[in-house]
Design a protein around this nucleic acid. Structure first.
Lengths: 93, 93
DNA sequence: AGCATAGGCAAGCGTTCACTTGCATGTCAA
DNA sequence: TTGACATGCAAGTGAACGCTTGCCTATGCT
């Protein structure tokens, strides 16, 4: 779980998760394009690739090779555990 | 919210939140002691103080001065927003 | 085969971060 | 008032981080 928190610390990685929420199974180039179009971010392809590596190592992204394409899919499971660790205590009634 | 994610990136800060979940209104020294007792961590007082500053800046900790004591209390509200940003999609039925 | 496309590897660079050290401020009790 | 206690401020250091650059591998199409 330590890797999950570190993965979320970067804004670009959070935006990548946002884009994957919109649609699963996106390639590196698709995600690069959307960062530029939706968020005016123009990091290099390698930078985005490294971000995706971090997300995958944290278990937040699953990948699948299909021919020369590598498809990325979000996995929200680790995120649910964050809210569970520090649950909002019930207001005394 | 960006500060919230960065605040959570450090393990010591997450443990501080854990301790504040156990009991609110703890002083800097109390938290230092608990890090040592419960987690075998012995950072200096200043290091812990800086961590608490980060947590406060992120809105995850509220403080109140009472005489020479500064009491720290957790605020879980920002944490709930994390799970809301990337909700687990319902499995197709 | 030849070429374009999609992605991978690795070194280098500047910044941020966590931490320590040293000193200063403020509060309370005797 | 004096001393002990709780906290604050600031500079310095080493490591981690995000990013770029340059080159390499692999797949698919004509």
């Amino acid at each position: 779980m330590s890797d999950v928190y570190k993965a979320l610390a970067d804004e670009t990685r959070r935006l990548l998760l946002d884009e994957l929420m919109q649609r699963d199974e996106q390639t590196l180039f698709e995600l690069c394009t959307k960062l530029a179009m939706h968020h005016d971010l123009t990091p290099t392809r390698q930078a985005v690739s490294q971000h995706l590596d971090v997300l995958e190592a944290a278990g937040l992204v699953r990948t699948e090779r299909r021919g020369r394409y590598k498809l990325h899919t979000i996995n929200t499971a680790p995120l649910a555990q964050i809210a569970e660790r520090w649950p909002t205590r019930r207001t005394r009634t």
